[in-house]
Simulated assay, not measured.
Amino acid sequence: MTSDRLPQSDSTATAGEITGMRRAPRQERSEKRVTLILDTFAQLIDEVGYSAISLSLLARRVGMSGPGIYRYFDGLPAVARALATRNQERVFEAIVARISHRPEADWDEAVTDVIAGYADFFRTEPGFRWLRLGNIIDEHQDDAAETNRMIAARRVGELFANHFNVVPRPDFGRHIEVVVEVTDSLVARAFELSPEGDEFFLTESARMVVTYVGDYLERTRPAGSPGTPPKTPKG
C-alpha cells in the first residue's frame, strides 16, 4: 500500500470562497494575512489543542491585533470552519489529481491510492488529525440539509462515476456515503495512538472499501455492459 502524499494545490478555495469568513479580502496582502491566520491556527491545534487556543494567542503568533483577526473572522469557531473548508478543498483537489490519470480498469488501485493519500493528510497537514473535514466543529458547515461527509460523498461519487464509467443507481450516493464514513473512521482510528498511522487499520480500510465498491459494481453492472468491471482486492 503506497504512502505517497496526495498532491496538494496552493490554489484551493480562495479566502472569499471559504466558509466562516466575515469578509473576503480583495487585495493580495489581505489574502496572505488570511492564509497566515489559517496556517497558524492549524499549527496551534497541534501544539496546544483547540480548547487552549485563545484569540490573543492566535493574534500574537500571527503578529496581528485581536481586532485585526476580527476583521476577517467572527471568532475562533469561524477560523476553525474556514480551516475545515480549506481542508475539504485540498482533499478533493488531491483526489481529482490522483484519479484523473488512472485508466478505467484501475479503479481499485485508484481507491487504494486515494485512501493512502488521505492518511498522509493526517501525517503532514497541521491540525488535520483533529479537525479533518470539520464535523467536530459543525456537521452542517455548508448546507443545513447535508452533513460535511454527505457533501464529500456526493462530490467523490460524481467524480468516480464520471471517470470510471459507472452508471449510478438511485442508491449510489448512499453507498458512497458508506465509503466515506468507513474511510474517515478507520483512517482516524489508525492515527489515534500512532503519529505514523497503524498500518493494520490503513490496510483494512483499503481492503474493505475496495471489496465493498467491487461488490456494488458487480451487483449493479448490466451483463455484457462496457462499464467498469469488478475486481478482487489485492493482498
Score class of each variant (00 low, 15 high):
residue 71 R to E: 01
residue 181 E to L: 09
residue 38 L to A: 01
residue 58 L to T: 08
residue 198 D to N: 14
residue 65 S to E: 08
residue 88 Q to A: 13
residue 149 R to Q: 11
residue 235 G to L: 15
residue 121 F to S: 04
residue 149 R to M: 06
residue 47 E to S: 13
residue 148 N to Q: 04
residue 172 F to E: 07
residue 51 S to C: 04
residue 65 S to C: 05
residue 4 D to R: 06
residue 156 V to Y: 15
residue 30 S to N: 14
residue 158 E to S: 14
residue 66 G to L: 01
residue 84 A to R: 04
residue 91 V to P: 03
residue 125 E to S: 05
residue 223 A to G: 04
residue 137 I to Y: 04
residue 68 G to M: 05
residue 50 Y to T: 14
residue 54 S to G: 12
residue 81 R to P: 07
residue 235 G to D: 14
residue 135 N to D: 15
residue 179 V to H: 07
residue 181 E to Y: 09
residue 229 P to F: 10
residue 52 A to G: 00
residue 102 R to Q: 15
residue 183 T to M: 15
residue 47 E to G: 09
residue 161 A to E: 11
residue 55 L to E: 13
residue 110 A to F: 01
residue 115 I to L: 05
residue 205 S to G: 02
residue 74 D to S: 14
residue 164 F to E: 03
residue 182 V to I: 12
residue 185 S to H: 10
residue 95 I to D: 10
residue 21 M to V: 15
residue 212 Y to D: 04
residue 79 V to C: 09
residue 85 T to R: 05
residue 47 E to H: 11
residue 104 E to F: 01
residue 112 T to D: 15
residue 214 G to F: 10
residue 26 R to K: 15
residue 70 Y to L: 09
residue 190 A to E: 03
residue 66 G to N: 14
residue 169 R to H: 09
residue 187 V to T: 10
residue 52 A to H: 12
residue 6 L to R: 10
residue 43 Q to G: 08
residue 133 L to V: 07
residue 62 V to D: 06
residue 99 I to L: 13
residue 69 I to M: 06
residue 23 R to H: 05
residue 232 T to I: 14
residue 21 M to Q: 11
residue 156 V to I: 15
residue 122 F to Y: 14
residue 54 S to D: 08
residue 68 G to T: 12
residue 146 E to T: 01
residue 139 E to P: 00
residue 38 L to Q: 05
residue 156 V to P: 07
residue 136 I to N: 03
residue 155 R to M: 15
residue 44 L to D: 01
residue 144 A to F: 01
residue 210 V to S: 05
residue 192 E to Y: 11
residue 53 I to K: 00
residue 46 D to K: 06
residue 220 T to P: 09
residue 192 E to M: 13
residue 138 D to L: 02
residue 166 V to E: 06
residue 76 L to M: 13
residue 6 L to W: 09
residue 34 V to R: 05
residue 36 L to S: 13
residue 179 V to A: 11
residue 204 E to H: 12
residue 42 A to M: 05
residue 201 F to W: 15
residue 88 Q to T: 08
residue 108 D to M: 11
residue 129 R to P: 00
residue 141 Q to F: 00
residue 150 M to L: 07
residue 166 V to H: 02
residue 147 T to A: 03
residue 115 I to V: 09
residue 133 L to Y: 04
residue 213 V to N: 02
residue 172 F to R: 03
residue 212 Y to K: 03
residue 147 T to H: 03
residue 164 F to N: 08
residue 60 R to M: 10
residue 92 F to E: 13
residue 61 R to E: 11
residue 149 R to N: 05
residue 124 T to K: 07
